[in-house]
Nucleic acid binder design. Structure first.
Lengths: 217, 217
DNA sequence: ACGGTTATCATGCGATCGCATTACAAAACC
DNA sequence: GGTTTTGTAATGCGATCGCATGATAACCGT
């Protein structure tokens, strides 16, 4: 029988897989990565264990798909957040993107829990490491491009090298995730630290408003 | 029977526990956190499973002790590395401490693997989170103190706020650990990024030599 | 209409897990 | 020197794991 691409018989195969991936996220962020079992995922998704096996032959493939779906989910949330800004400056874009990657709301916290779990697993599972390099490398590339554009537009202070400061701000953001998750640093402190760095990198008046109340128009 | 404190009967109880903790580290960094079983740890340590149970009533207590031992081990390596410096400036101290926390050698990589594994587990196990806050909070405090001292000695450039830049450099370092572990960033690139930040924070001539060959005396 | 495919579920199986139990040798105590 | 305590090992047990198998109903193309 011929297999016609993109025309599912009864259900949307990929959507089911994404739904199961979301169940994986819920289990990881509530019970932990090591507690992920096919039975837990099935229960979380409201289906039987056999259904999970139907969409993922092995547990490894399920987790690997979940990781790639998490990458897509973070990128989508980044794009949505950025698109919601009205006439943003480069600083506004970078600030918003940074805030998305920090666990400041339930969605961000779930994503951070899942990502740190896969980072840990990636140290012994090369397939995870490759996927993480893909996702995080992509965001880093975009961040550097944003800084380059800001530099071209003259929004950066004198002497600020976008090739150095873009990765620095990006990895600083990543470094804040863990401490926030374990309660060593609060989201507010983290954002204050980010804003302090942005103040150092960008000229004054190159963004709408940082943390203060925005003045009436 | 009376229990005389600090006088072990035949073996050094705490040393045995540390030895088992090191076996835990080896298992985590080679097989992963979820693969840690009492049998694996026993085999890695060269003892029977019953011996592991003798020193740790439960697996949880074993892992919790391992985490506290890892904190001690990192702090000891920090102290040893810093003590080996000859007439270091504050910048030299901070640079050395930063390099210790990055996975640049096998020891550092093992520690990073273990720490990121516990960070992941800490999101669902408060006891781990508390232990991590303790360890990382301590290092952060020392780092801030070092920056304050550098500021007092006039080694920092004008306008550099130690209360902001100390945490920023510290979390930047933490943010580099994960990307290095998964191969997104090389240790050399990471150290170059750190040195670029140090160049920005410290006045010229406040350290012996950064990356260039040191001139003859 | 009907054979074939797909989606779903229930169940079974071997392996492994944490933990409890037991046995035994060596050191310590009185 | 006999008893108690401690270190070490071996083994058993119930639970859970990933995965394989079989059954059942819905949907498809011809």
């Amino acid at each position: 029988m011929r297999y016609v691409e993109g025309v599912p018989k009864q259900v949307d195969h990929e959507q089911r897989r994404r739904h199961l991936a979301e169940a994986v996220f819920a289990v990881i962020s509530t019970q932990g990565f090591e507690a992920v079992s096919l039975r837990d995922v099935a229960e979380q998704a409201g289906v039987s264990m056999g259904t999970v096996q139907h969409y993922f032959p092995t547990k490894q493939q399920m987790l690997l798909f979940a990781l790639s779906h998490m990458r897509d989910r973070v990128l989508a949330r980044l794009q949505t957040t950025v698109a919601a800004l009205r006439e943003p400056t480069r600083r506004d874009l970078i600030r918003a993107a940074t805030a998305v990657m920090l666990p400041v709301d339930p969605a961000g916290r779930e994503e951070a829990c899942v990502n740190i779990a896969f980072f840990s697993a990636a140290t012994v599972t090369p397939a995870y490491a490759e996927q993480l390099r893909n996702g995080y490398g992509r965001i880093l590339t975009v961040s550097v491009a944003n800084f380059r554009e800001a530099s071209r537009l003259g929004e950066l202070r004198d002497g600020v090298d976008p090739e150095v400061e873009a990765p620095a701000l990006y990895f600083l953001t990543q470094g804040l995730v863990g401490p926030i998750l374990v309660g060593l640093y609060s989201p507010a402190e983290a954002l204050a630290l980010i804003d302090a760095q942005l103040d150092r990198l960008f000229r004054a008046g190159t963004h709408a408003a940082s943390t203060a109340d925005k003045p009436r128009p």
